[in-house]
């Protein structure tokens, strides 16, 4: 985190704690990805929603890691990892290339913690680049120079800069797509592998005339900038998760919305009937 180097961590979640129930699915590592480090060290967290989406999410994670010089967490789970779906193999030509830019040796001293004005990414130099010799490490760095610093104001600044860098990634997130009406009685908000179960449930409920819509998050940190206004367009928000309530805590604290949870922690993915009966209970 403090080294601010690009890294992609893929966590294929399964039922824990510890060895838990190997090969059984769970979505219980969201908080781990969000907060499971010492110090305040936010990192982007992305979750693919289908087996095919794993490809694009991983590609996106690599792009973000390089553009922002940061570790990125991807949360899939055993259900996604063992699942399959028809997938149109993308043509490489259609995939935008990822540009990587390195620092250049100039007359002055290379400043490893000088940041890009927009993204706040620091400048990257790798071993072997003449004139760019420098040291990085786990001790707090001085803003710009990257030298070790125990200065209280500098630490405060660096904590904020690292957080601001991640918060600024909302610029990478496309507008939230709401399936169904953009306003109504209930929005079912999901993340990760629950996509299929939620979508088919909402489809079924809508065909019965229920005022239910669906939004699904790929970005869990930062949350999309327009998420709050979308949530507020509904009377109620339901958040199904295969955990005992993690996204719901983020949503409640972030938007002060009294969302309801549907939480089954049985090592199994949701069934359509479970979601439908919960929605019927609420409405």
């Amino acid at each position: 985190m403090i080294a601010e180097l690009p890294l992609v961590v893929i966590n294929v979640q399964r039922a824990g704690p510890s060895t838990g129930m190997p090969t059984k699915t769970e979505q219980a590592d969201l908080f781990l990805a969000m907060y499971g480090r010492n110090g305040e060290s936010p990192a982007p967290v992305l979750a693919p929603s289908t087996p095919g989406d794993c490809f694009f999410t991983t590609y996106e994670a690599c792009r973000i890691a390089l553009k922002y010089m940061t570790p990125v967490f991807i949360l899939t789970d055993a259900f996604l990892a063992n699942g399959s779906e028809p997938w149109m193999i993308p043509s490489l030509e259609d995939i935008p290339t990822i540009d990587v830019s390195y620092a250049e040796a100039s007359d002055g001293h290379y400043m490893p913690y000088e940041r890009d004005e927009e993204t706040l990414a620091r400048r990257w130099a790798i071993p072997g680049m003449s004139g760019l010799e420098h040291r990085i490490g786990g001790l707090e760095r001085e803003h710009i120079s990257g030298n070790i610093s125990y200065d209280p104001d500098n630490h405060d600044l660096m904590v904020r800069l690292r957080a601001e860098k991640v918060a600024g990634m909302t610029r990478e997130i496309p507008p939230t797509e709401v399936y169904g009406d953009s306003t109504g009685d209930l929005l079912v908000l999901g993340w990760g592998s629950t996509f299929g179960a939620i979508r088919t449930s909402v489809e079924a409920l809508r065909s019965e005339g229920k005022s239910v819509s669906h939004a699904h998050l790929k970005w869990l940190n930062p949350l999309p900038a327009d998420l709050g206004e979308n949530l507020l367009r509904f009377q109620k928000v339901l958040i199904p998760e295969v955990n005992s309530g993690q996204l719901i805590k983020l949503i409640r604290s972030e938007f002060l919305i009294d969302a309801e949870g549907l939480n089954l922690v049985r090592g199994k993915p949701f069934r359509k009937s479970q979601i439908i009966s919960k929605v019927e209970e609420i409405l």
Binding site: P127, G128, E133, H134, R135, I136, G137, G138, I148
Partner: peptide, 11 residues
């Protein structure tokens, strides 16, 4: 590594 003027990583 901090004291060597080379590439260095205190991991």
């Amino acid at each position: 590594p901090y004291y060597m003027d080379t590439f260095g990583f205190h991991t």
